[in-house]
Simulated scan of single mutants.
Amino acid sequence: MPFTLATWNINSVRLRAPLVTRLLQDHAPDVLCLQECKTPVDKFPREAFEALGYAHLEAEGQKGYNGVAILSKLPLQRQETFDFAGLGHARHVAATLPNGVTVHNFYVPAGGDKPDRSVNEKFGQKLDYLTDMRDWCHSAKPARSILVGDLNIAPREDDVWNHKQLLKVVSHTPVEVDHLADVQEAGGWVDVTRKDIPAGNLYSWWSYRSPDWDGADKGRRLDHVWATPDIAGAAHSSRILRVARGWEQPSDHAPVFATFDID
């Protein structure tokens, strides 16, 4: 039975609950992974989503910052969550679907403004977080798994609007790209979005600082859907819902979708 999964950095689920509702009503993914929810779990606005058939929720939250959640029409079995880099942040949640596929939802630290850990602690935390993700993949080789989320790195040249100009900008620096590649290699993860859309500029984030984000189109692909090799071949129909970036009071990210034909 096919199922469709979407991932979206919502940038406050309570503030943007109407946008989540719109997405669920209009596009109806079976599973929706949210990042940067910015709320304790007990204040998550789950009732509005339950009314649309999303009766299952697994989340990690904290007041005003970070936060990840998995909303699902399908039952979820909670799995172990990890505090990579020992930050004490709500940045990972995992759950298994009835078909045995485990979904890992991540919100990797953004890394601040300066790509130098000697002067920017947040950049060091980002690199350490990715290193711990790599080590986790090595120690517990993932299988029948999907990894999604705001990984806060645009790895390819065509994942950013200008490769040369962004080489020294956090999210596209070579050291970050290398760290993300180490995570991907350690888990054998397949970039599902790029499997389906192998060439061409592709973005999921546009800065709030741009008054004409659509016209300027200075985007980056920070949001990802990966799968282990044993199920990656079952993935198809990847897309980024760019139009959602233009909704009223939008997140600066757009949802990323993929469909999996897995029994």
Rank of each mutant, 00 (worst) to 15 (best):
P2L: 05
A6S: 11
A6Y: 03
N9M: 06
L15T: 11
P18F: 02
L23T: 05
Q25I: 11
V31G: 04
L34G: 01
R46T: 09
E47G: 11
F49D: 02
G67W: 07
I70R: 09
L71K: 10
S72V: 09
K73T: 12
K73Q: 13
L76G: 12
F84N: 08
G88S: 11
G88D: 05
H89L: 14
A94V: 14
A94W: 11
V103H: 01
H104P: 12
G111V: 00
P115E: 08
E121Y: 08
K122M: 00
F123K: 09
Q125A: 09
K126C: 05
L127D: 05
M133H: 02
D135V: 09
C137R: 09
H138A: 12
R144P: 06
R144E: 05
V148K: 11
G149P: 11
W161N: 04
Q165L: 13
K168I: 02
P174D: 04
H179G: 15
A186P: 14
V190P: 13
A199C: 03
N201L: 10
N201K: 15
R209M: 07
R209L: 01
W213Y: 03
D214I: 14
K218Y: 05
P229M: 09
D230A: 15
I240A: 07
L241H: 14
L241D: 11
A244T: 14
W247E: 11
P255T: 06
A258L: 10
I262H: 12
